[in-house]
Computed example of a mutant assay.
Amino acid sequence: MPKINGNEIRPGNVLEHNGGLWSAVKVDHVKPGKGGAFAQVEMRNLRNGSKLNERFRSADKVERVRLEQKDQQFLYETDGILTFMDSETYEQIELPADLLGDRRPFLQDGMMITVEFYENEALNATLPQKVVCKIVETEPVVKGQTAANSFKPATLENGVKVMVPPFVGQDEEIVVNTETMEYAERA
């Protein structure tokens, strides 16, 4: 595995540190008035979800791990366990539902997601960046209200609340960005 300097760590990098696999969530480069510069890295453990703040000087070497990414199809959920199937080998894997966090409601039947593996161990799952959802409830369209850049609340079929432009009405399908949990466009 390649070793990188402490100042080369970027958000999203997966590092082997203290015998565990950690994902860099937030990286701040700090240059104090006295002493050497360092990177303040907030990391999340990929196996148990615990968090850790660590300082890395530029001279420190850390192992950067490359995860293998495979597309998996979502099949079903049972008691908080999500079941996915590899579309090439038809092997099934199970992951905890809390791995997706607050993006869990956007997971739909048959949806293709990317699962990251480290030596045949599934560690992380990412949804597609954009998902089509139907609006179940929102305020009616009011004529002449499109001049200002205003948004109104809307409830989606999966129960998530998002802000939508005033011209979008009830029972319409919209595209939602799963990273920012915001309205992107009409479907």
Results as ranks from 00 to 15, higher is better:
G80S: 14
L95A: 15
K34S: 14
D109W: 01
N124F: 02
N120L: 08
L82N: 06
E121M: 04
A125K: 07
Q145G: 07
N149Q: 09
A24R: 00
D102T: 03
T114P: 02
R104A: 13
A37D: 15
F84L: 01
R66D: 04
A147K: 13
E121F: 00
T138E: 10
F84R: 06
K161A: 04
L156P: 10
E91W: 05
T126V: 05
N158K: 11
G159P: 11
Y90C: 01
P32D: 13
F151N: 03
E185G: 14
A187C: 15
Q145Y: 01
N48T: 13
E77C: 04
R44F: 01
E116Y: 02
D102F: 02
T126P: 06
R57N: 13
P32Y: 05
M112P: 10
Q73A: 10
E119Q: 04
Q73W: 00
K70A: 04
E139N: 15
T78Y: 09
A97I: 07
V62L: 07
V175L: 12
G159E: 07
G80R: 08
D79R: 12
A148N: 11
P140Y: 00
S50W: 06
P165Q: 02
V162Q: 14
E121D: 12
I93Y: 03
D98Y: 11
S150F: 03
K34A: 14
G80A: 10
S87Y: 07
N158W: 10
N13R: 09
N124Y: 07
K161V: 06
G144V: 01
M181K: 13
G20A: 03
A154H: 06
E77F: 00
K26S: 11
V142E: 09
K152V: 00
D102V: 01
Q129P: 07
N5L: 03
F74V: 08
N45W: 05
Y76A: 03
E68V: 00
Q40S: 11
V136D: 12
G159D: 09
D71C: 00
V141Y: 15
D60S: 08
V160Q: 06
E63N: 04
R104L: 09
Q170G: 15
L156K: 12
M163V: 14
V162L: 15
E63P: 02
V160D: 01
T138W: 05
M112Y: 03
L127T: 08
M85Y: 03
K134Y: 14
D60I: 03
H17V: 01
R64T: 00
M1P: 10
G6C: 09
E63H: 00
F84A: 02
E182V: 04
M1I: 02
E42D: 13
A187S: 11
A147W: 13
F38R: 11
M112N: 08
N13Y: 14
P32M: 02
Y76G: 01
E16L: 07
S87E: 06
I93S: 01
R104M: 11
L21G: 09
Y76K: 13
D79K: 14
P2Y: 12
L123H: 08
N53A: 01
T89M: 10
L99K: 10
K134E: 14
F151T: 10
D109K: 06
E8Y: 06
R55F: 13
Y118G: 11
P140I: 04
E68K: 01
E173Y: 12
V136I: 00
G49M: 10
H17F: 12
E91I: 05
V27K: 10
P153Y: 06
D109Q: 01
S23L: 13
S58Y: 12
R66C: 03
L100W: 03
D28W: 08
R186A: 05
P32I: 00
Q69K: 04
W22T: 11
